[in-house]
């Protein structure tokens, strides 16, 4: 199913976050992150925030992290970020 939706997105030039239900991230320097299409919180502390996504967990680490807006489909995180890591089912790490 996922491969099919990816195929549709690629061939029809439709945004993947809309078709494949992938999270969309907007990062403003190392101070603010806006996440859409999240599936909820997994961990929330001053230094680490884990946000559930469709295929795994997004791990944001840093200092003085605060969730300033939290809605059903979106979340805005403020603070000084050290790393944003995708933890896909625990077998693969992608760092951006």
């Amino acid at each position: 199913m996922r491969r099919f939706s990816e195929f549709v997105a690629n061939t029809m030039r439709v945004p993947k976050d809309a078709v494949m239900d992938l999270p969309r991230l907007s990062v403003c320097g190392d101070r603010e992150i806006y996440i859409e299409n999240h599936k909820g919180l997994a961990e929330y502390t001053d230094t680490d925030i884990r946000v559930k996504m469709r295929d795994g967990i997004m791990h944001i680490s840093g200092k003085e992290l605060r969730i300033i807006v939290m809605k059903y489909g979106s979340i805005v995180i403020n603070g000084i970020f050290g790393a944003v890591i995708y933890e896909n089912n625990g077998d693969k790490y992608k760092k951006c």
Partner: peptide, 26 residues
């Protein structure tokens, strides 16, 4: 299960804001 509680609040469209982590909770 504090994170779960937050998620359930959002799923039930309950209005929560200014969520700040403290030593053993939120």
């Amino acid at each position: 299960n504090k994170e779960r509680f937050v998620n359930m609040c959002l799923n039930n469209f309950l209005n929560i804001y200014d969520v700040v982590p403290i030593e053993d909770g939120l």
